[in-house]
Each structure stands twice: as C-alpha cells, then as structure tokens.
C-alpha cells in the first residue's frame, strides 16, 4: 500500500496511514525480541573462550569482547582453558556419556510404549479411553519433583537408587502422558478406513497396525520423539535426585559444578560446560525446526 498524498482532512487517508506506524512498531518489537532472545547465548558462547577476569569484568565490559585479560594470561585472545577444565579435569565427558545413554533409551522406550497406547486410545472411543486421557492430563501437569519424593524411599529400600536404568524407566513414565496425548491426536488424523479395511481383509488388529499404520506414522513419531528427547535431556528434578554422583547426567553435573568450582574460582569450567550442553540443542533446532514448530502447535490446532 503506497500513499503519496497526505491529506489530513481525509479520514480514509488517516486510516491508511495507520499500517505504516503499526508495521514500524511491530518491526521494532520483533527486533527487540530477537536481541533479547539471542544475545545471552552469543555472549556466553563468546565469553566461554575467555578467562574469568574477562567474562566477569566489572571494570569494562568490552574486555570480554577483546579478551584483554585473556591475552595477558594466556597469550591469545581465545582460550580453551574452560573446556579443558570441564571436560578433562572435571571429567564432564562422563556426564555427557551418561546423558547419551539416558536420553537414547528414554526416547526409544517412550516412543514404543507411546505409539501402542496412543494408537489404542485414538481407535477406542470408549468412556475409559477418555478417562485415561484425562488422568494423563493431570499427570502431565504435576511437578516432577512431587513424584520424586515418592520414589526415593522405595528405591533406597530395593537398592536400585543411583543407577541409570532406574532413571530411564522413571523418565519414560513421566514422559508417557505427554507422548500419549501427542500421538493420540496424531493417530486421530490417520483415517480409520486404512486399518479397518485391512481388518476386513482378514488382518488382526495388530497386523493392521504393523503393516498399515507403522509405515505412515513416522512424521508424528519423529515430532513426538523430539519432545521426548528434550524432556529427558533437559530434566533436572529427576536426574539430580535419582542418580549417584558417578552416574550423573550433564544437567545435574553442571549444578554440582557450581558448588565446587565457584569456591575454587573456576566458574569458567561451568560456563564451558553450559555451552557444551547447549550445543546439541542448537543443532537439534537447526535440523528439526519445522517438526518442532508443528509439534508445538499440534495440540492447539487439533484440539
């Protein structure tokens, strides 16, 4: 819309002037939001290659950009000291490895359980299916830490506290309500006729699921899998309470870093660990942006 003549007495011209002002405001708002969203990450990634005196520089914040103290201490503007300290000295690789194991098994088991259950709920239509979904909604809303307080005592008694399999099973269970809801609404979108015609042709329900539904379900499963991944990867409440120090995953490891390294003046170890733990998420968003967006909106659009 281009308006070249300005006539203050014409109300329609004034009305058509509005968009440009609105557009400018919305551009500014988006710009501001992008800075707020991205700056903390850029700042921390850049700063993780500096020494503490630069990253936490009271005197002059540009020190962190130019690395004045980093040059003075190490001879170069970039240093890997933080990363070396975290990964080698504090053995962060152990935590990374544990995270890989926990996340991998949690995602695989959650999806297996979730697809079977979600499919059944989508095709049932009985009252009890509805009540199961409602129960799942309440479970989904419960803070995870409330459940953890129920686990500790029995797990200590049975001597299964502190090991990875226990944590994996717990994360799978905590993940189920969400996985069920998501896959349930996804299976609702696959026409009933597909599996039912297979059953008319003589397949059992499971065969119909195996040969008709499984080949077409992957987009939904991948989207759900991404969120299962995020839940397991980002978890702090469960992993910090249920894992022994030796079996810690990355997030509780970072939390316990804070206690130990702050005292020894090695905050940069924690900064490096934080950047290392964020990097995989960055890659994930880069490759799966579209699936993540569709997953976030799935629940909303489909009811």
């Amino acid at each position: 819309m281009t308006i070249t003549t300005l006539d203050p007495s014409s109300s329609s011209a004034a009305a058509r002037q509005m968009p440009s002002a609105l557009t400018v405001i919305s551009f500014l708002l988006v710009g501001l939001w992008l800075v707020i969203a991205a700056f903390p990450f850029l700042w921390t990634v850049w700063g993780s290659f500096k020494v503490q005196a630069d990253f936490f520089s009271k005197a002059d914040w540009t020190n962190a950009l130019r690395g004045t103290n980093t040059i003075a201490e190490t001879g170069s503007a970039f240093t890997l000291r933080g990363y070396e300290g975290a990964w080698v000295q504090e053995e962060f690789w152990r935590a990374a490895l544990n995270s890989c194991i926990v996340v991998f098994f949690t995602v695989v088991i959650s999806l297996t359980f979730g697809t079977l259950g979600g499919y059944a709920l989508a095709r049932s239509g009985k009252q009890y299916a509805f009540w199961l979904l409602m129960a799942a909604l309440v479970f989904r809303a419960m803070p995870h830490i409330t459940l953890v307080s129920g686990y500790l005592l029995p797990f200590f008694e049975w001597n299964v506290w502190g090991i990875l399999p226990t944590t994996i099973i717990v994360l799978v269970a905590i993940n189920q309500p969400f996985t069920l809801w998501m896959l349930h609404s996804f299976f609702l979108n696959i026409p009933k006729d597909m599996d039912e015609s297979a059953m008319v042709d003589g397949c059992t329900r499971f065969q119909a699921f195996r040969h008709v539904i499984i080949p077409v379900m992957w987009p939904g499963v991948i989207t759900t899998g991404l969120f299962s991944f995020l839940l397991a990867y980002n978890d702090f409440a469960v992993t910090s309470m249920l894992l022994s120090e030796k079996n810690e995953t990355m997030i509780p490891a970072i939390a316990s870093f804070l206690g130990t390294t702050q005292v020894e003046g090695n905050v940069m170890f924690a900064v490096a660990a934080v950047v290392s733990a964020t990097a995989p998420l960055f890659v994930l968003i880069m490759f799966f942006q579209r699936q993540i967006v569709s997953g976030l909106t799935a629940g909303a659009v489909k009811g």
Binding site: W33, L34, A37, N234, F236, V293
Partner: peptide, 16 residues
C-alpha cells in the same frame, strides 16, 4: 532464534 530460549535446558538458561 526465538526457539532457543524456549528449548534450552531451564537450569542452563537461567544460569546464562
């Protein structure tokens, strides 16, 4: 860019 603050681990995001 907008997805970053949402998907980052809450503990890590708040630490940053």
């Amino acid at each position: 860019v907008s997805l970053l603050p949402f998907l980052v681990t809450p503990l890590v995001g708040s630490l940053i």
